[in-house]
Design a protein around this nucleic acid. Structure first.
Lengths: 339, 339
DNA sequence: TTGAAAGCGCTACCAT
DNA sequence: ATGGTAGCGCTTTCAA
């Protein structure tokens, strides 16, 4: 059922029908009524593809994330989705699976599908943004969310990563822990660098020496590689002459994967090792023991990023380059209590 | 950068360029090379919109789920995504938020966006499928996954719901529990009916009377309503003259929401109340106590559904109406151990 | 107030 | 082997 079909049936021209359905002032009330009634009756659905092609915009936003099946990520997507629906945009989600190559493929597919803008949280693997710079030069609006890189001059939405890691570390120190290790994402993405910096700064402010052996990278490429790398990191840490008495896991993926592994390895938490994790799972308080967490405003990150991107697309953004940092929140629970 | 731009630059016609890029036998090798080289050099990206409009297919699949931020759902989406990527389709995901009205809106938006097919897991609210029947009559291929309704004559992919609930109930009975309550999704969707049926059949096979007061509906509309309804259900159950000694939660949403609530209400698990939950969270074994679960092959459900839908779209499906039931698996953990 | 026609970028048919 | 052209469904300008 197309405009032409309606036009033929009502003995009108397609342009009249088009205008009538868009409630144009040019069309008489009676004609409008006739058209609208008929269209409803036959269940006319405008062809968005044709409209998009004609108008040069698709009202579709591309979203690239590392993996969809992660509580933090899916909450951000929820925020993005809410805003996009509200403002009349559809989203096309693709997963980079932390692979740089895959990420490039995702962006190319999305660009080919005429997205009006791109929301992307880059893969950990190689924080190279040449492909994004190319798309930016071609005029594609881009907003980075959660993970970001300073190499790309676009709006960014994230949290106060330094502060979040500082809070976690400071909390552990105040609870009597001084030998604190971190499990991080092994990427030079800003988000990771900043979190490591927050960790170091907290140690420094408490006159605690930073030990490089306490800083262990994890491999996020796949679940199995992540689990393996956490296992190896823990083995390395426990083999140290001064093994750590506390651990901070710097991402949701690492946190949720670490918990079962630590338990399997026989660590008692917090007696053998205290734990604070960056994670948004709503099961944190139900874990054994309840997990102290750095909780990020995931929905807010998604909403803010989507709103900013659409603002840019629609040309109503003022300070478009300013990065927005939301606040993460520390929830103190038993996994990091003073012993 | 369009075909015409390339054609102009190389002094060719658009049709020649089009054919050259699609490696047509009609085009000479040298011309092909010239075109391909130039296209790569200027970073030509074909306009998928135009292609879709022309060809009458978008290579896009619409996916409607209740909510994206749920471990089970996001795992299914992961499976769908994998298959779609592999087979050259993009997906457009929309959330019904368990609202029937919202679900209709989702399907209409997706249909308007010229999807080639629809993967849908209907909302709990009102299992009315008239809108789907309409789309089906208009020729839109549809596959139901996870949740399904017999009212709609399309391929379905789910699990052996009756068997899954039977397993959970049987397990509890064998561990000595006879007063077993269920928290269910309050929907007449097949999936829920079947699970309740499995529960009843297990009781029956063990000569245990089915008490209707033990069967409590929950309201999935929103997180807060869900939590409230679980709370009320538990209050009702504990007020009974013979309160239950075990509970089965019949969906991922209910399971993950129940755990913190039961703990807050002061129930000791399994001493005061044993628990078996339908859930795919990978934190089940890390909970306090480790949670016995019915684990569904979520990725497999997604993959199977996506493959069947694409088979239908591409006309290579044979037994297209047969429903596929995958097996769920019971993991026995401490939350339901014999006391 | 209504209609004719061009054109968005692409493919496919038919000429050359 | 290459090119011209119609047309996918829509919006928009200009004419009637």
């Amino acid at each position: 059922m197309t405009l032409r079909d309606i036009a033929k049936a009502l003995n009108l021209s397609t342009s009249t029908v088009s205008k009538a359905l868009r409630d144009s002032y040019e069309i008489g009330e009676d004609t409008k009524k006739r058209v609208i009634t008929y269209a409803e009756q036959v269940g006319y659905q405008p062809n968005t593809l044709a409209k998009s092609l004609k108008e040069g915009k698709s009202r579709t936003i591309g979203v690239v994330i590392c993996a969809i099946d992660n509580s933090f990520v899916s909450q951000m997507l929820n925020g993005i989705d809410r805003v996009c629906n509200e403002r009349g945009y559809s989203i096309m989600i693709m997963q980079s699976k932390e692979s740089h190559e895959q990420e490039i493929k995702c962006t190319e597919v999305l660009y080919g599908r005429s997205i009006d803008g791109l929301l992307i949280s880059p893969a950990c693997e190689t924080p190279n943004v040449d492909h994004l710079i190319r798309f930016q030069q071609w005029g594609l609006p881009i907003v980075l969310f959660d993970r970001y890189s300073d190499e790309l001059d676009v709006p960014k939405v994230s949290i106060n990563n330094l502060d979040a890691a500082y809070q976690a570390t400071d909390h552990l120190i105040k609870n009597g822990y001084t030998r604190i290790a971190v499990l991080h994402s092994n990427t030079s993405l800003n988000i990771n660098i900043q979190r490591l910096e927050g960790y170091k700064r907290a140690l420094h402010n408490h006159q605690i020496e930073v030990r490089e052996q306490y800083i262990q990278p994890c491999n996020l490429q796949s679940t199995s590689q992540l689990e393996e790398s956490i296992y190896h990191a823990m083995e390395k840490l426990s083999a140290l002459s001064l093994p750590p008495t506390a651990i901070i896991t710097l991402s949701d993926q690492i946190s949720t994967s670490s918990i079962p592994i630590l338990q399997e390895m026989g660590y008692r938490i917090p007696q053998d090792i205290a734990l604070v994790g960056f994670t948004n799972t709503n099961l944190a308080s139900s874990l054994n023991p309840p997990l102290s967490t750095i909780y990020q405003p995931a929905i807010g990150i998604g909403e803010t990023a989507a709103n900013r991107l659409i603002d840019i697309i629609e040309g109503i953004d003022e300070e478009e380059k300013k990065t927005v940092y939301l606040d993460a929140k520390l929830y103190e629970r038993a996994s990091s209590k003073r012993i």
